[in-house]
Computed example of a mutant assay.
Amino acid sequence: MNRLTKVPSAELNLDAISVVTNMYRAAQGLRNKMERDVLSKYGLSWTAFSLLYDIWVWDSLETKKLAELSGVSKATVSNITNTLERKELCYRTVDKRDRRITYVAITDQGKQVMEELYPNFHKGEIDIVSSLNQKEQQMVSQLLRRVIRHNNF
């Protein structure tokens, strides 16, 4: 705080700093915890899980949409998809009408992994927010959704 208050700015907003710092720490902490406690057993990174989760929910998605949903670049989707394909968890198809469009779909093995993995992942989600009651969880969720919408994340 001492260092920040010495920054030459009449508009230093310590509340904004606190909120963003805490959101970052929470995001990094939950990512690390889930990778360590759940995803490592399946050899999946957070990003690989995110992609696999989305194609599990939607069955198949265009790579551009998959990148948007996961908050990563199309190049990252391509690299992660390569890894998931090697593990036989997904496969790619090219649009018959427009060969520039590629879809990623989940395999039966990918569905099986997600059906086994997700209940453990969900237990981790519950554990992470266990210090908040239901009303507090709903309030945090609403506030974060507002930040997400406002910033088009």
Rank of each mutant, 00 (worst) to 15 (best):
E116I: 01
A26K: 01
I106Y: 11
K33C: 05
S78R: 06
D54F: 12
Q137F: 02
V140G: 02
S40M: 08
Y24Q: 14
N151A: 10
V147N: 07
L66K: 09
K65T: 15
L89W: 05
R36T: 07
R145K: 11
L132T: 09
V104F: 11
T63P: 14
D54W: 14
F153K: 09
I128R: 04
K6S: 12
T47N: 15
V104Y: 04
T83L: 00
L117P: 07
T83D: 01
E136I: 09
T102M: 09
D15F: 01
N22C: 08
L12V: 11
M23D: 04
N120W: 01
K135P: 00
V57R: 13
R149P: 00
N82P: 01
M1R: 08
T47V: 15
E136G: 02
H122S: 03
R25A: 14
E62W: 11
K41L: 10
F49N: 06
T63R: 13
D95G: 06
D15R: 02
K33G: 05
L51M: 15
I80Y: 01
K135S: 07
S73F: 00
Q138L: 13
L14E: 14
S73N: 08
S18A: 10
N22L: 09
I17Y: 06
L117G: 05
G71R: 03
Y91T: 06
V19R: 11
K96T: 14
K135G: 05
F49W: 12
S40V: 04
V113K: 04
G29Y: 02
K111T: 14
N120C: 06
P8T: 10
K6Y: 07
V72N: 07
T83V: 02
S131N: 14
T5S: 10
G29A: 04
Y91P: 06
D54G: 12
P8W: 00
S130V: 11
Y53E: 12
S60F: 13
G43R: 05
L117H: 04
L69N: 14
N32I: 05
S131P: 08
Y103D: 00
R146G: 04
